[in-house]
Design a protein around this nucleic acid. Sequence first.
DNA 1: GCAAGCATACCGACTGGTCGGTCAAATCGA
DNA 2: TCGATTTGACCGACCAGTCGGTATGCTTGC
Lengths: 194, 194
Amino acid sequence: MTHDKEPVRQRLIGEATRLFADRGFESTSVQEIVAAAGVTKGAMYHYFDSKDDLLHEIYGRVLRMQMERLTLLADGPGPVAERLHAAAADVVLTTVENLDDSKIFFRSMHLLAPDTRKSVRAERRRYHERFRDLVTEGQREGVFRADTPAEMVVDFFFGSVHHLGTWYSAEGALSGAEVGEHFADLLLTSLRPK
Amino acid sequence: MTHDKEPVRQRLIGEATRLFADRGFESTSVQEIVAAAGVTKGAMYHYFDSKDDLLHEIYGRVLRMQMERLTLLADGPGPVAERLHAAAADVVLTTVENLDDSKIFFRSMHLLAPDTRKSVRAERRRYHERFRDLVTEGQREGVFRADTPAEMVVDFFFGSVHHLGTWYSAEGALSGAEVGEHFADLLLTSLRPK
DNA sequence: GCAAGCATACCGACTGGTCGGTCAAATCGA
DNA sequence: TCGATTTGACCGACCAGTCGGTATGCTTGC
């Protein structure tokens, strides 16, 4: 049970993610987290400065991973429509595969300390901008309609992605990859010139 | 100051909405709410059973209003594409005009007592179903593409709507009506048959 | 006189965080 | 090689403060 080989720090992050997604950040006590991880509060405060710090770490992990994958796909070869399609489908897939992270992300943002929140927002913004650049690129080339601001298209799409956590279920009929294909399809279609 | 003519009950709901949207449900104490409304806890617990009950009331108001408007537009005259367009633009507009409600809605759902949450979910579901029926209607008529499940189209669209609270600002360049038009446009375009 | 509409005073549970201490492993000096 | 010393990982008891909620009583208007 507790003789899990996974290091304590990882276990704390893992259990915290599960609990935060389930009950929310504020409704989860530090006591519950450390109990779930099979350690005590002393251990947690040995690895993290505060409960906020723990949450910050969760955000950091997600942001790093998503940015990495987007850069890879966006800077890859092929026409812009294909790259956007791939990036869109991929972000849906990784979101579904880390649904707990996603739930926490958009539910708890406002609970972060102001400075932390600012840095998370900035990181998120860079991500959105990279995505938006794909849209504007296609608009310049004329393969995407240009009468809707690229910024709004991105907000439109990521709204859908962020809200996967409220309805998607791994036990449902559709796999993450399938939803990704559908979403990417809807996005690309909505960008078709008239 | 306190001699506001607005009845205490309304004032409590109003201030609670503002505070919940700002700091979140769990980070807002009952003390803060009653202070903002210029009364004491005795007053609040006279009108509401609990803090949860207050939150429930906020959900109820939003749900009732949105359902009412959707029914009016969906059951109205005109071709289905126009009705869907109108309904989509309208829900964006009302969301933007009640942005605090929207923020609370998707951030605090998981904090409701299980029974309450269940009833909110059910109500929300009926709303989605009415919206979805518009999509299937258009698919049957052949004016919308049918290779994407209507259910998913609805989830896709309402993800975007729900997330308006995270990026839309009344001080921004775009009015609620403008965003509504753009969103409805994107939705209708994404449904165009090939 | 009697509800309805509040205020005041208070309770018990629980919170995030601290702090002194333990214990095994690594490092070091001779 | 081996004892001494330091270090990192972690425990468990304990704060001071805050929370949602309640019990009771006053004050109006009818």
